[in-house]
Design a protein around this nucleic acid. Structure first.
Lengths: 153, 153
DNA sequence: GTTGATGCAAAATGTTTGCACATCC
DNA sequence: GGATGTGCAAACATTTTGCATCAAC
């Protein structure tokens, strides 16, 4: 859990590089937050509070304020994606080259969340953006649905 | 602005019907909130605070608490859609038959928001849902982008 | 040593709730 | 008249910020 980092690449560059640019510093706190997301892997969505709790469990005390500041920074640097899946605050997930723009199916009843990718969606967003001169950055489709279990209730 | 309501149909039934069911009441406050959205028309996204301000400007004092309660209700009844477009809280928009599931292009720089529809997106969401046994309720694609103006800055 | 980062506590936002009073049906 | 809705203020939850201290470079 606190083993050496794989330092794989996100957004096309080594994990810590962005944290050494423009006078930014790679502090232990930032390292810990990054490690946490790395160890979780892609496809996990956690809140700032979750990060805080999980770091505490790993015996790392990092203040919530710092976590918020770090998450914001990591999003700006493109290491994380920020999601706004309906209720209960924002969630963050690791960004990765192998796992680019993807979409979410959320069960409105139990909250179960599944991911999927779609070239069609990507393209539709791209075309819509182009048609009015917008330059696409990223797109995500949120599908509100009922999962199999909740359909039976 | 405070003229008679067109009472066109939303979600397939007259505007106020849902507010008379299950013991619900059509109060002046609720009417005012509905009127506001009607007068705005489809395609406008406003926050609870916006509703509050705009009603004040129209000389209608409705408490913020009531506005939150009313918006929640109207979403449950299907008269409004709730959007979670990135920064700055939730937005609400009038739902309508003629303007079903649609998507949003948001300029990350200036916040300009444009709408579009796409059969492909709808279908991609539908297929993704089906493939794992989810039953689709609705889907919206959020595209983060740069508008023409902001590309030049 | 300088500048940027952290931690703390306080403040700012956005949203919800308890309760007494008002009001719709 | 009874249930439902409103307004107010307080409570909450989440996120941001000022400031003194600390530490990366």
């Amino acid at each position: 859990m606190s083993a050496s980092l794989p330092y794989s690449s996100y957004g096309g560059r080594p994990l810590e590089v962005g944290l050494h640019q423009d006078g930014r510093r790679l502090t232990p706190q930032r390292k810990k937050v990054l490690e946490l997301f790395e160890n979780l892997g892609t496809g996990k969505h956690i809140s700032a509070e979750d990060v805080h709790h999980q770091l505490l469990e790993a015996k790392s005390r990092v203040s919530l304020a710092t976590i918020y500041r770090t998450l914001k920074l990591l999003v700006e640097l493109g290491f994380l994606h920020e999601l706004e899946l309906s209720e209960g605050g924002h969630r963050f997930e690791l960004a990765s080259k192998e796992h680019p723009d993807h979409h979410h199916l959320v069960c409105v009843s139990c909250g179960r969340t599944e991911e999927f990718e779609s070239e069609d969606v990507l393209q539709a967003g791209q075309e819509a953006a182009e048609s009015i001169g917008f330059k696409l950055i990223e797109s995500t489709l949120n599908v509100r649905a009922l999962c199999p279990k909740c359909q039976k209730i």
